[in-house]
């Protein structure tokens, strides 16, 4: 019950530093956290059409799991434990949408335990002069991703220590953090927000909905992900992604930004 003890602090009003200094380095998730799906050898003979978001498919004789669609509900593991295993490590965000699709026999893209927080700090410092401005846009999410993005600003994650801050206008933003399915009713507003953002206009799609439409798919009300409306640079899977995963996505996005010319 270490985690339970972690939560019991001495005195809430005078308790010193609560910030997790090794945020991406040391796992914060619990053992039971549903973070990713691994394909087991037994998947070869399995056909399971029941996936609510259509993340599991069979293509060319091979089973694939699209982690950019996956809700991490665990139904596949219950239906076919010989084929699918829910694991607690969170799925690594990716620059290419295709990298979120695992093929039977391939690697599961779990975030590696590197000191990514420090790396981000260094990158933001080098590339952006220690200031990365983010505008969050909800393009039709359930608000779950917003809860986790908001958590980034709490004292535990304290994203501002990396030079990352949320700004009130797209005109001040380097990065757009977009959640939701790409709702039909928000299409115009999202496009105009994108247009109002100065270059380099980096877009990070956060959550299964933003990556693919998630459980909502592509319908009269949904573009099936924000890439249907604006170009996306980084995909952060999860339903919703953990705050660490969102931070990791931002880290990848910074790589897309050309280094500043130093005078």
């Amino acid at each position: 019950m270490t985690r339970a003890r972690d939560r019991r602090q001495r005195d809430i009003l005078h308790n010193g530093v609560e910030t997790d200094r090794r945020l991406l380095d040391r796992p914060r998730y619990s053992e039971g956290f549903r973070g990713t799906v691994a394909l087991l050898p037994g998947a070869a003979g399995v056909s399971w059409p029941g996936c609510a978001s259509g993340a599991i498919r069979r293509e060319g004789g091979k089973v694939t799991v699209d982690l950019g669609r996956c809700l991490m509900c665990g139904r596949c593991q219950e239906a076919a434990p010989e084929a699918f295993a829910i694991e607690s490590g969170w799925t690594r965000p990716a620059r290419r949408r295709g990298d979120l699709v695992t093929v039977q026999g391939g690697d599961v893209p779990v975030a590696s335990a590197q000191d990514a927080g420090a790396l981000l700090l260094e990158k933001v410092g080098r590339v952006l002069g220690r200031s990365l401005a983010i505008r969050e846009v909800d393009a039709g999410s359930c608000n779950g991703c917003e809860v986790e993005i908001s958590a980034l600003s709490n004292p535990v994650y304290d994203v501002e220590r990396f030079g990352v801050r949320f700004v009130a206008s797209p005109r001040h933003a380097d990065v757009l953090l977009v959640t939701g399915v790409g709702a039909t009713n928000l299409e115009d507003a999202l496009r105009r927000t994108y247009d109002a953002t100065p270059h380099p206009k980096v877009v990070v799609a956060v959550g299964a909905c933003a990556c693919s439409g998630g459980i909502f798919g592509e319908t009269y009300a949904s573009a099936g992900g924000v890439a249907g409306i604006v170009p996306v640079d980084v995909y952060v899977p999860g339903c919703p992604p953990r705050p660490e995963a969102v931070l990791y996505g931002i880290l990848l996005a910074v790589d897309r930004v050309a280094p500043q010319k130093t005078s």
């Binding site: 609510a52 039709g140 999410s141 709702a183 459980i215 909502f216 319908t219 009300a221 919703p240």
Partner: peptide
């Protein structure tokens, strides 16, 4: 943020609709 929840549910199994109901409002 209209995502067509009620229409979507009409094409789902009951268990899938349960997952959908969790995502009406996270």
């Amino acid at each position: 943020a209209h995502r067509g929840v009620e229409k979507l549910a009409e094409g789902m199994t009951l268990d899938q609709a349960l997952l959908l109901s969790e995502r009406i409002s996270g």
